[in-house]
Amino acid sequence: MKNKSVRKILIVDDHPVFCLGMSELINKAADLEVCGSEDTPAKALRAIQRLNPDLVIVDISLKNSSGIDLVSDINNRFQGLPVLMLSMYDESLYAERALLAGARGYLMKQEAIGVVVEAIRQVLSGKIYASEGVKDKVFQRLVSPHGSTDTTPFDQLTSRELEVFRLIGEGLSTREIAERMKLSIKTIGTYRERIKEKLNLKHYTELVKAAVHYLEMAQK
């Protein structure tokens, strides 16, 4: 039986089987308890108000939204509530962006089962959970936002542009991306043109190839 000092954890992920497995794992810890799980940002924000969790675990890829956008919303609306971000993508591509958005930790799903309890406890104690390399990069970006030379062309993309780029790589059409992100087709088209310009891509075919390659690199 758990005592009154148990810390409540809310999981935001649109994969039910993963949520169930993660919940069972966390609930085995005497000092932690999953108080709920949601699959969209809107439901997550309502659940935070209702359940008052001590920490929120957010998947980077959610229905109709980017998890990074949700992290920003949580950071703005519930100041002081720590967020641990989960992702299937390599930390070198997303961790820095997630931490700068306000997340207190970044954990890849492939290793989550083994270290999620440790990561939760570390974040709850006020520390940041990420590799030393990622933490160093974030620190350097904060103290010298325009002086870093360790960047990639993808760093030029905003979170929304990166989300559109990722969905193109998954094979979604402009209409499907618009429906997924609840934006107009015209807006998605504007994002596409901005991405092409920032990545120096001339044609849509080049954009698709680059997006597919990006996803392959991210999932290695």
Results as ranks from 00 to 15, higher is better:
residue 176 E to K: 15
residue 183 L to I: 07
residue 186 K to L: 03
residue 169 G to M: 11
residue 183 L to A: 11
residue 193 E to M: 03
residue 209 K to D: 12
residue 179 E to P: 00
residue 209 K to E: 14
residue 190 T to N: 02
residue 175 R to K: 14
residue 163 E to C: 08
residue 166 R to Y: 11
residue 210 A to Y: 04
residue 214 Y to V: 02
residue 165 F to A: 06
residue 187 T to W: 01
residue 211 A to C: 09
residue 188 I to C: 00
residue 212 V to M: 10
residue 211 A to H: 04
residue 190 T to K: 08
residue 187 T to M: 07
residue 162 L to S: 05
residue 213 H to F: 06
residue 169 G to K: 12
residue 206 E to A: 14
residue 186 K to E: 09
residue 213 H to P: 00
residue 210 A to H: 10
residue 200 N to Q: 15
residue 193 E to K: 08
residue 201 L to R: 06
residue 174 T to A: 09
residue 196 K to W: 00
residue 163 E to Q: 13
residue 191 Y to L: 00
residue 160 R to S: 08
residue 181 M to E: 04
residue 208 V to S: 02
residue 173 S to W: 02
residue 175 R to D: 10
residue 183 L to P: 00
residue 185 I to M: 05
residue 196 K to G: 00
residue 188 I to G: 01
residue 213 H to S: 15
residue 197 E to I: 00
residue 161 E to V: 05
residue 162 L to Q: 08
residue 177 I to D: 04
residue 164 V to T: 14
residue 171 G to H: 07
residue 173 S to G: 10
residue 190 T to M: 05
residue 198 K to I: 03
residue 214 Y to I: 03
residue 204 Y to F: 09
residue 212 V to R: 14
residue 166 R to C: 12
residue 174 T to F: 03
residue 171 G to N: 03
residue 186 K to D: 11
residue 175 R to M: 04
residue 207 L to S: 01
residue 171 G to V: 10
residue 189 G to Y: 05
residue 195 I to M: 01
residue 195 I to P: 01
residue 163 E to H: 09
residue 158 T to F: 10
residue 170 E to A: 12
residue 162 L to G: 02
residue 203 H to N: 13
residue 166 R to S: 13
residue 179 E to L: 07
residue 184 S to L: 05
residue 186 K to M: 12
residue 183 L to G: 00
residue 207 L to P: 01
residue 162 L to K: 08
residue 169 G to W: 10
residue 157 L to F: 10
residue 203 H to Y: 13
residue 172 L to M: 15
residue 196 K to Y: 01
residue 178 A to L: 06
residue 159 S to V: 15
residue 187 T to Y: 04
residue 179 E to K: 08
residue 166 R to V: 03
residue 179 E to A: 06
residue 161 E to G: 03
residue 159 S to P: 01
residue 185 I to T: 14
residue 202 K to Y: 10
residue 213 H to G: 14
residue 195 I to H: 01
residue 169 G to T: 12
residue 199 L to R: 10
residue 213 H to L: 13
residue 189 G to W: 04
residue 189 G to R: 05
residue 206 E to N: 09
residue 205 T to S: 13
residue 206 E to R: 04
residue 205 T to K: 14
residue 189 G to E: 03
